[in-house]
């Protein structure tokens, strides 16, 4: 039993963190605000080159063959860095392609040539034959496929098959949003949920990103509390500030521990894996949303400006909180589970 990162995992996450802080600075989100894609192709390919898209993919398709715990630790860094771009969709898409017997497709995702956007079904349905209905698509620019999670399984559908996408104003400057209404589009790949619970995997990686956000806002708020001087003292001496930072730290720690527990539970096929993953999503969403809100408050007027990063954490956290599963469904789903193992 070991829930702490190994030396190898610490090296892996340090390398990922270094890549994001050097190549994908948060200020870039503001700079690219009016660009069609939230991340430039060169940086996307550099990330693929580093192996970020194939961590858990088998070596036959160019992946590293690592575990979901390794991948979750890297997605925590993606969340911490607020890195834009279709990382989540492409990594999940590669997993789907491998399990659906399309290693060629998976290989082109792992090396960055084929990007996969996430699509949320607003109404309609998705199945082995394909999908029909109304969709919201995240970061569609440059994508070849969209990934759609349904009740019975997950599908990859060609982005071109969705017809005209209508760009929408999204809440997060780092996430492009569009909607599509599709009569019928066939699935390039279909993975039944009883073969692989891809939604749980998606929830683990989203939870890991939320953990990264919760830790980032904890650190940003604490730094501000150390340096911002009012009434002749750093504001962090006041318990009104200090205790809020402490609460952020505890929530982030709880979210991290549970997310890693959920990742390992899913990976090892424990009977209570769904219980553990839903719990991870619930505590990590709350840690990120509460923490990002507190961070804005602790920064005062500055926290309310577009120029500051504080709102970017909140907005990404809201996007992730609403992906794959709404909170009431997560809570209902958790209560419907048998007790933890």
């Amino acid at each position: 039993m070991d829930l702490l990162p190994s030396r190898d995992q610490l090296e892996l996450t340090a390398a990922a963190a270094e890549f994001f802080s050097e190549q994908v600075p948060i200020a870039g989100i503001r700079a690219r605000r009016d660009e069609p894609a939230s991340l430039d192709t060169k940086t996307w390919l550099a990330g693929a080159e580093l192996g970020l898209l194939g961590l858990s993919a088998p070596e036959e398709v160019g992946g590293s063959g690592l575990g979901l715990d390794d991948e979750a630790l890297v997605f925590r860094e993606i969340g911490r860095a607020l890195a834009p771009g279709p990382f989540l969709g492409t990594v999940l898409g590669a997993r789907l392609a491998v399990l659906a017997g399309r290693p060629d497709l998976a290989a082109s995702m792992v090396d960055g040539r084929t990007a996969v956007a996430l699509a949320e079904l607003r109404d309609g349905s998705v199945g082995p034959e394909g999908l029909g209905g109304r969709l919201d698509v995240l970061d569609p620019e440059g994508s070849t496929y969209v990934l759609v999670l349904g009740e019975d399984g997950a599908a990859l559908v060609e982005t071109a098959a969705l017809g005209d996408l209508e760009p929408l104003a999204g809440i997060d400057p780092g996430t492009r949003l569009a909607s599509a209404t599709v009569g019928a589009a066939s699935a390039a790949c279909w993975l039944p949920a009883d073969q692989e619970p891809l939604r749980l995997r998606a929830l683990v990686l989203a939870s890991a990103m939320l953990v990264g956000i919760a830790e980032a806002v904890r650190d940003q708020a604490s730094d501000h509390a150390k340096n911002r001087v009012q009434f002749g003292r750093p504001i962090g001496v006041n318990q009104a500030i200090k205790h809020r930072c402490a609460d952020m730290a505890v929530a982030a720690e709880a979210a991290l521990s549970q997310t890693m527990f959920g990742a390992v539970a899913l990976q090892s096929g424990r009977a209570d894996r769904e219980f553990q993953v839903l719990a991870a999503r619930i505590v990590s969403s709350r840690a990120a949303l509460d923490g990002a809100s507190a961070n804005i408050q602790i920064h005062g007027g500055m926290g309310y400006t577009y120029e500051h990063d504080a709102h970017l954490y909140l907005k990404r956290a809201q996007v992730l909180d609403h992906l794959f599963l709404q909170r009431t469904d997560a809570l209902g789903g958790l209560l419907a589970q048998a007790a933890a193992q």
Binding site: F261, L278, A279, V283, L331
Partner: peptide, 8 residues
């Protein structure tokens, strides 16, 4: 969810 996180 919280007691699960407490255990983790």
């Amino acid at each position: 969810a919280e007691v699960a996180a407490l255990r983790a």
